[in-house]
Design a protein around this nucleic acid. Structure first.
Ligand SMILES: [Mn+2]
Ligand SMILES: [Mn+2]
Ligand SMILES: [Zn+2]
Ligand SMILES: [Zn+2]
Lengths: 135, 135
DNA sequence: ATCTAGTTTATAATTATTCTAAAGTGAAAA
DNA sequence: TTTTCACTTTAGAATAATTATAAACTAGAT
């Protein structure tokens, strides 16, 4: 991901490209593979990686702005913390509870043959599949 | 569900059948349909229903003991609170985010045709499908 | 009836998250 | 350029869910 794209992501999230925000955005989006993280884990990684300290509140704010703008998705996994995902396409997950790890499953890797119709007056927004793993 | 079954559930959860625990257990298990709840919602309902006051800590303890014993399951839904489910069979859910409501989907209502194989050294424990609803 | 391990409860502690308000900063206007 | 000011960052406070603590209470065995 090029610098210009980082700036585009920030602008489309209604965020001015400040030093802290650019650092967070580069850390999140300048990578090949999907990145699943909690705010806590992201904070720890940024402390190691980055030279300047970034306040936790700034990380919360920035991550939420990216989520609202559609640049991050939220994944619901067991536990008390909120997980985010740099993969915002429609996809599914393996969940390895041994080490609290999410692994992406591409949408076309799962085919559902039969599905119930939505209840009275409701429509189906999307279907999420979780495959829980064991050793 | 008969009283004897309530006592059996308590005993199998390694819980002595105290007044409070019997009240919680009867409220949870003496019903026809699945009951999805948070500790907070359960507490409110018990305050209305029950004569004696039950401490929140007792509700947490009892619900967790039931979960550990397999009499309740935990359902992961968006949000910060933990949901429990009196349906402990393998099943799926509609999730209506408008009113934070879970609706059961029987396991045989969903047929998955294609599924990826578990990663390196892991096995599939179970598959959970969430169908998110909109209006 | 007495005893004792298990239980309840109020309250404190912890954890994740959000709020607040004061100090800082950058880009546009003068 | 200097000024200006809306936007930011940040430390710390506030809130919310959950868990821990420890003293008072009880079920069930003796
Ligand atoms: Mn969660
Ligand atoms: Mn949840
Ligand atoms: Zn993902
Ligand atoms: Zn259910």
């Amino acid at each position: 991901m090029k610098k210009i794209d980082i700036l585009k992501k920030l602008r489309s999230s209604k965020l001015r490209p400040t030093k802290q925000r650019v650092e967070i955005a580069k850390f999140l989006f300048e990578r090949e593979k999907t990145f699943h993280f909690t705010v806590e884990s992201l904070n720890k990684l940024l402390i190691k990686k980055s030279t300047s300290k970034i306040a936790l509140a700034t990380i919360y704010n920035t991550v939420h702005a990216f989520k609202t703008a559609g640049h991050l998705s939220e994944v619901e996994v067991r536990g008390n913390k909120t997980y985010f995902d740099t993969n915002v396409s429609n996809h599914h997950h393996f969940y390895d509870s041994e080490n609290s790890e999410l692994i992406d499953i591409d949408a076309n890797e799962i085919v559902i043959q039969k599905i119930p119709k939505a209840p009275n007056g409701k429509k189906i927004k999307n279907v999420e599949v979780f495959i829980n793993l064991k050793n």
